[in-house]
Design a protein around this nucleic acid. Sequence first.
DNA 1: TTGAATGAAAA
DNA 2: TTTTCATTCAA
Length: 192
Amino acid sequence: MGADEARDPGNPSPMTPILTWAVPVEPASQSIAFAPNMTPGTFIDPPLAIEAVFEPILFPSSPSESSVRRPAHSKKRGEDHIPRPPNAFILFRSSFIKSQHVSTDVETNHSTLSKIIGLTWQNMPHDERQIWHAKAKKALEEHRKKWPQYAFRPSHGKTKGAAEKRKVREVEPKDMKRCAKIAELLVEGSRP
DNA sequence: TTGAATGAAAA
DNA sequence: TTTTCATTCAA
């Protein structure tokens, strides 16, 4: 760490409309419930209870065609393998791909897609990203609940002989600019 | 098996 | 601090 917290480049937005936050339409359908094994005595009240995880405004997941969940890479890794809990970006990316907002029809290269989605992620307003962070947090809680004893154990000597990673194809700057434009348009165009 | 992104957590 | 790995699927 250190004094390099200047991780917030241009984000002045002096005239950002702040998106009309459509109040959380979540009545009592999602009432807070204590876990069965949790005794009221041990309940620690979190400073900020963000129980309600609102749906993203900019890039909502497609309501249709989203039931068949593939086991991803069921090969390799024994069935005992517990996958890491997905972080906010991974969740966002998955949703983005599934939604087919821009995927496989125009770009089949997932590496490029990752670039576009990454740029889109950075262009997203803070509020929107926070929603995905909340989702990630929730996923983490579920993960902990499902595998309480899970712990991330990265293998050290994994990357082969530390050989040079050969790049398949570096995205040309021209295409890079195109990606940036796409990402920008994606966010701008999704604004209400 | 790799690439490509971001982020959480381990070493 | 650096490295691993979570998702995703065409090469």
